[in-house]
Amino acid sequence: MITYYPRLTDSYSMLLIADFTDKSPDELAKEVQVHNEMAFYSPLATHPVPTQEIEELRSSLLRVAEDCGFPEAMARSQVRDFDQRAAAVLYDSLDLVPAEAANQEIWNYITLSVLPDIAAWRYPNISRSPSFERWLGVDRNVFRKLWWREATLGRSLNALLGEDEAVGIMERPSLSGNPAVARAIIQSFDRVYPEFAEFGRSDLLRAVMVNIRRHLPLVDFEFYEADELQEFISEIIYAACKNYADVQRESSSI
Rank of each mutant, 00 (worst) to 15 (best):
I212S: 01
Y244P: 08
S176M: 06
A29I: 10
T21E: 01
W121V: 14
A65I: 02
L94D: 07
T111Q: 11
A39H: 06
Q230F: 02
Y4H: 14
A207V: 13
I2T: 15
E231Y: 13
N211I: 07
S174P: 08
D246V: 09
E250I: 15
L94M: 14
T51V: 14
D67M: 08
V49F: 04
T3V: 15
V79N: 00
R134S: 03
V49S: 07
Q248F: 05
D67T: 12
F40N: 02
A182H: 03
D139A: 14
V219E: 01
E66I: 11
F70G: 05
G200I: 06
F189C: 02
N211V: 08
V64G: 00
H47T: 12
Y12P: 01
F232G: 03
R76Y: 14
D81I: 04
A180W: 07
R201H: 02
Y4D: 11
A73K: 13
I212M: 04
L204S: 10
L16W: 00
A99F: 08
D227G: 01
L112R: 08
P194R: 12
L112K: 04
S156I: 12
G137E: 01
P179D: 09
P50W: 05
V138N: 12
I118P: 02
Y224T: 00
L216D: 08
A120Y: 04
Q84C: 09
L44A: 13
V181H: 04
R80S: 09
R128A: 10
I254H: 09
S174C: 12
P25F: 03
E222I: 05
A65F: 03
E133G: 09
T152Q: 02
E72Q: 14
E163R: 10
E56G: 10
Y193Q: 10
E250A: 15
L57W: 04
V210R: 10
L205K: 00
E222D: 12
T152W: 02
S188L: 04
Y123A: 12
D227F: 01
Q104G: 05
S127R: 11
E165N: 01
R149F: 15
F40S: 05
N178I: 04
A39Q: 05
S59M: 15
N158K: 09
E171S: 09
Y41A: 10
S131W: 13
Y193N: 08
A120I: 03
Y41V: 05
Y41S: 03
C68P: 05
E27D: 06
G154S: 04
V32Q: 06
V32N: 07
M38R: 14
I237M: 00
N125V: 10
R249P: 07
M14A: 05
V114G: 05
P48A: 03
E56A: 14
V208Y: 00
E171H: 09
S59F: 13
H35I: 10
L115F: 09
V181S: 04
A119Q: 07
L44E: 12
A151T: 00
V32M: 11
T51P: 06
Q187E: 13
E235V: 07
I185K: 06
P43Q: 01
R183V: 02
A239G: 10
V64N: 01
K23P: 00
A86H: 04
V192F: 02
R214N: 08
E228G: 06
A119H: 11
E225W: 03
T152H: 03
F82E: 01
P6R: 10
I233W: 01
E171D: 13
L8H: 05
P6V: 11
